[in-house]
Amino acid sequence: MLLGTPAAPADAAESSLFRGTRQFPETALWNDSADPAELVRSIGFGAVGATCNPVIAYTAISKHLDEWAPRIARIAAENPTWGESQIGWRAVEELSIQAAKLLEPAFQASGGRNGRLSVQTDPRLHRDADALVEQAVRFSLLAENIIVKIPATAVGIRAIEEATYRGVSINVTVSFTVPQAVQAAEAIERGLDRRAADGLPEREFGSVVTIMGGRLDDWLKQVASTQRLLIEPGYLDWAGVAALKRAYAIFQERGYRARVLSAAFRNGLQWSELLGGDLVVSPPFDWQLRINENELPVVRRIDVPVDERIIAELSKISDFCRAYEPDGMTVEEFDDFGATRATLRQFLDADAQLDALVRDILIPAP
């Protein structure tokens, strides 16, 4: 019986995830959701962290309105001058604190390298580095094991360095490409070096640099369709994996203190092709169930390069070259990359949906 089946205890089955976390403990499993019910089950698979974003937070709250509607009403009653956005974000904070508590054992056991719960900065602040930093500092104080998401945009890269300097553990988000990952890692290095130069306390920040591999795949499929390019069937499912493997190799070569994190799952390759690496894989909970149900192989493949024929075929798409080469884009070009614009818009839409949900609770339709 597979892990995730209701009748099986979490520690009794030989699922792909459970075997992977035992055989390759350096490859950390994080749950791509802060939903406490999902996180408890994911911890049973070996998860030692969790990530969240505006879409995930909205989904978690809207799925459990029997619990969250009265909590949101209480937040509003305690803060009578607050608008929908402030109330909604306080609910996100409470969700995050609740989830972070579940990860405290992994945080203590790893000395802070794992056991982290990600909270994302408000995407409406994406043009204001100072505002991103101030919110990141605030979120970092919610719990000892909070890690804060800041986007890998031109403004975000500046905020990442400053927030790191101010003691915030960072999860770089809205990041899809090797150049974004490299520049974000460099920003974290600068922040850590500034702390050391100023004699600030050294500790394990546990910072990670996300590459949303599946969203890179999504964007390149859209580009190929728009440009009427015929790419070999199945090859476009390797683009995100190729970017993750290349970024990982660079991080290892250069000794960056942050780890690569794989997110935005679209296929099983984004699990199986990264096993054995000192990095984080963060599938949504349903993808964890799928991996287990299909018994994906547990074999070290992080060092196995993507087939050169696949890379050559993908290189017909100029945006793949921009995403795959470490110097494929300048920092100033990050904001205009198609996947960046699409994801920022989706996150902003989720903010608007959370506002509307709060409004419906406070002012029900007649």
Rank of each mutant, 00 (worst) to 15 (best):
E186Y: 09
D198W: 03
P179N: 09
V174Y: 05
T226M: 09
A224T: 08
A163I: 05
G206L: 14
D193F: 00
F139T: 00
P179I: 07
A159H: 07
I147A: 04
G240R: 03
E186L: 14
A197K: 13
R158T: 12
I211Q: 02
A243M: 03
L142Y: 10
V223S: 07
M212E: 04
E144M: 09
G213T: 10
P179K: 00
V209L: 06
M212Q: 11
E161Q: 15
A224Y: 12
W238C: 05
A249C: 08
F251H: 08
P151D: 06
V168Q: 08
G234I: 11
A181R: 01
Q180C: 13
L244M: 14
V178H: 08
Y235F: 14
L142K: 10
R158I: 04
L216K: 00
I146M: 15
F176E: 05
Q252F: 07
R190L: 10
A184K: 06
A159R: 00
A184M: 12
L244K: 01
L229T: 00
L244G: 02
R158D: 13
G199E: 13
V241S: 05
T164N: 09
D218V: 04
A154I: 03
M212P: 01
D193I: 00
T177Q: 13
G214N: 11
G167A: 09
E189T: 14
V223P: 04
R254W: 11
L142Q: 10
S175G: 09
R195P: 07
Q252C: 14
E253F: 04
A196E: 14
I147F: 04
T210S: 15
A187S: 10
P151M: 06
G234L: 09
E202W: 11
F176N: 06
T210R: 07
W238D: 01
R228W: 06
